Amino acid sequence: MAKPNPKGPVRTVQIYCTKCKFQLLKYRKGGKGALVKCFKARIVENFTKNEGICPSCESQFARSTLIRGAPALKIVGGKVIMK
Rank of each mutant, 00 (worst) to 15 (best):
I75Y: 00
L24V: 05
G33W: 10
R68K: 15
C17P: 05
K83S: 09
K40V: 07
T48W: 02
F39H: 09
S56W: 03
L25K: 08
K83A: 11
C54P: 06
F39P: 03
Y16C: 14
I81L: 03
P9L: 00
I53S: 01
N46P: 00
G69Q: 06
L73I: 05
E45Y: 13
I81R: 07
Q14K: 14
V36L: 11
P71I: 04
V13K: 00
M82R: 07
K21R: 13
P4C: 01
A70N: 07
Q14P: 02
G30T: 06
C57M: 09
A2Q: 14
P71R: 09
C17E: 05
L25D: 03
F39Y: 13
A70G: 04
F22Q: 11
V36H: 08
Q14F: 08
G8Y: 04
S59I: 14
G52W: 03
F61A: 04
P55M: 09
A34V: 11
L24R: 05
L73Y: 04
V80Q: 07
Q60P: 05
K3P: 05
G52P: 03
A62L: 00
K32N: 15
M82W: 08
C54Q: 04
C20I: 08
K3R: 15
E45P: 09
L35G: 02
F39M: 05
Q23P: 09
P4F: 02
K83F: 11
K21L: 06
Y16M: 13
C54V: 01
A70S: 13
Y16D: 14
I75G: 01
S59L: 13
P4E: 06
P6T: 11
L24G: 05
A62M: 03
V80A: 01
K21G: 02
Q23H: 08
C54R: 07
V76D: 13
A41I: 09
N46D: 14
I67A: 10
S56E: 11
T48C: 11
V13H: 01
L35Q: 01
C20K: 06
C57A: 09
G78Q: 00
I75N: 08
I15T: 00
P6Y: 13
S64C: 08
K83V: 10
L35Y: 00
C54D: 01
G8E: 07
L24D: 03
Y27S: 00
N50I: 04
A34W: 10
K29T: 07
Y27R: 06
A2S: 15
S59C: 13
